[in-house]
């Protein structure tokens, strides 16, 4: 039995494993263990597979997770995604996550104007710091004080 996987590898797999993977959930683990292991350890890993209730998103390749997280706007990235788990925290430390700072879409929040704008300012400064000079595009509105702009310019 042959199975194709990412990156043009073809693996020959004993049909006993193949029957295994008619279980959808299981076969998810199957794919990713294949992608992350060499051919030899592959077979051993499949032998040791455990059935899990949900696909494990943390086993997705890092660039796939980054692809999703990079689409979040800056506020969501700072306030939500980065504190989900250690892996995502780690991904969010990557300066490349911060090449674009998009803070144009934050008017749905119901804070008093002053507190709100000072919070956005903090988030923006934080994001600028995280970018470590990789910042390319920035979109902000309603809190562009001199202080923030200077902070951005200095990085």
């Amino acid at each position: 039995m042959k199975l194709t996987i990412h990156q043009n590898h073809v693996f020959i797999v004993n049909s006993k494993y193949f029957n295994f993977s008619t279980n959808k959930t299981l076969s998810f683990c199957f794919t990713f263990s294949i992608m992350s292991s060499s051919c030899l350890s592959l077979v051993m890993e499949i032998d040791n597979l455990e059935i899990t209730a949900d696909p494990n998103w943390l086993e997705l390749p890092r660039d796939i997770t980054m692809n999703i997280l990079q689409r979040l706007d800056t506020v969501a990235l700072v306030t939500s995604a980065s504190v989900v788990c250690p892996l995502w925290w780690n991904i969010c430390k990557d300066p490349h996550m911060w090449t674009t700072i998009d803070m144009m879409n934050n008017l749905s929040l119901t804070h008093s104007e002053l507190a709100y704008s000072s919070r956005l300012e903090k988030i923006c400064r934080y994001a600028v710091d995280r970018s470590c000079g990789h910042l390319k595009d920035i979109y902000i509105k309603s809190f562009g004080t001199d202080g923030v702009l200077l902070h951005i310019a200095n990085r």
């Binding site: 796939i64 979040l72 788990c85």
Partner: peptide, 30 residues
């Protein structure tokens, strides 16, 4: 993949950390 990445990002944007964890079935293992 790019399209669905955007869809997922849209669906978790502005949600609580707990919601995002539930969405992905991620344990808080800090």
């Amino acid at each position: 993949l790019d399209f669905l990445s955007q869809v997922i990002a849209d669906r978790i944007a502005n949600k609580s950390v707990e919601y995002v964890r539930r969405y992905f079935g991620i344990e808080n293992d800090f």
